[in-house]
């Protein structure tokens, strides 16, 4: 990045301005990429994630069989050249089901966390900006929501609303709203004290403009990093709910649901459980690696290290 621009105006002033300039500094994004680069583990996570996403998108091309096709002749076959990951109790190809299963995991996690980010982020921003009793009341409400174990809350909501894709997304996002509200509120409290917010008000900007145009970009990086880490949690919760039997209804392949089905034949056919288990693990691990690297890159406390 180049030094400060050459000033116009009279000579003495120009000289003084030049002298007054700080040392050239790298911009925010470049620094972030630099720190991200320094951490090879976050690249590993990103690579794993990309592979899984591609597998989900191109599942119809990659899968050797239809994931729903049952075959009485091929029940509980161990892994072989024909069925790389074996077959389940209905003779369905485990590999094909694992590939398709990635779709539900990704859709639920991305939709739920996207929703939680928007809802929680807005609550945190508005609550922090407004302050006072409104803020206290909102944060108390978030505390109440957080005092339910998230898996239990998700369980209850899905069970009562019915195990459908939409309800699953709503339930998981609801459990993730409080942390996003908190993570967005903390920097909002700091940013709203800065003079540029006051300047915006003096210039006649609306509160909405100040919150979403001026404060939001200053809060965004924290929320996004948190989002990556919570994607991992959402994948885990979705799989857990499916395992309990409250996921997307069969025969749609989900990783958690596959492990639930595998449970009955765990003595004879452990492969039915092992492969979807490894798939869940790989996706959650990839998201955690990525989120961890991003957090290290954005955490000012770790920057000095």
């Amino acid at each position: 990045m180049s030094a400060a621009p050459a000033p116009t105006g009279n000579g003495a002033e120009a000289a003084a301005i030049a002298e007054d300039s700080p040392a050239p500094r790298r911009g925010g994004l470049a620094r972030l990429v630099g720190l991200f680069n320094a951490n090879w583990t976050s690249w590993a996570g990103l690579a794993m994630l990309v592979v899984i996403v591609l597998m989900a998108i191109f599942a119809p091309l990659l899968a050797p069989y239809d994931p729903l096709d049952q075959s009485i002749l091929n029940r509980l076959k161990p892994p072989s050249a024909d069925f790389l990951m074996g077959t389940d109790a209905f003779g369905r190809d485990v590999l094909s089901r694992v590939l398709y299963g990635a779709r539900i995991s990704l859709i639920v996690a991305i939709a739920a966390i996207g929703l939680a980010m928007v809802a929680g982020g807005t609550i945190g921003l508005v609550s922090g900006y407004v302050g006072g009793r409104f803020d206290v009341a909102m944060m108390q409400a978030m505390d109440v929501l957080m005092s339910f174990p998230s898996l239990i809350l998700g369980l209850v909501i899905v069970a009562l609303l019915g195990p459908e894709l939409r309800n699953l997304i709503v339930a998981i996002s609801l459990t993730a709203v409080p942390p996003f509200a908190r993570i967005a509120r903390a920097p909002t409290l700091a940013v709203k004290e800065r003079a540029f917010v006051e300047a915006g008000r003096a210039l006649g900007f609306s509160h909405a403009r100040i919150i979403f145009v001026h404060i939001l970009p200053n809060v965004m990086s924290e929320v996004v990093v948190m989002g990556t880490l919570w994607l991992a949690t959402a994948v885990r919760v979705e799989a857990s709910l499916s395992f309990i039997g409250l996921g997307v209804k069969p025969p749609t392949p989900t990783w958690g649901g596959m492990m639930r089905d595998a449970f009955e034949n765990i003595l004879d056919a452990p492969w039915i459980a092992i492969y979807p288990g490894l798939a869940i693990l790989a996706l959650v691990f990839a998201l955690n690696l990525l989120g961890d690297g991003l957090r290290d890159a954005t955490d000012p406390k770790l920057r000095g290290e």
Partner: peptide, 24 residues
């Protein structure tokens, strides 16, 4: 890395893996 891997395990996955490994 091992700890990150550890907290990436949904408990039912690690539980089933343990079942397969130890008990069976």
């Amino acid at each position: 890395i091992v700890s990150l891997l550890g907290l990436s395990f949904p408990v039912f996955v690690s539980g089933i893996f343990l079942l397969i490994a130890f008990a069976l």
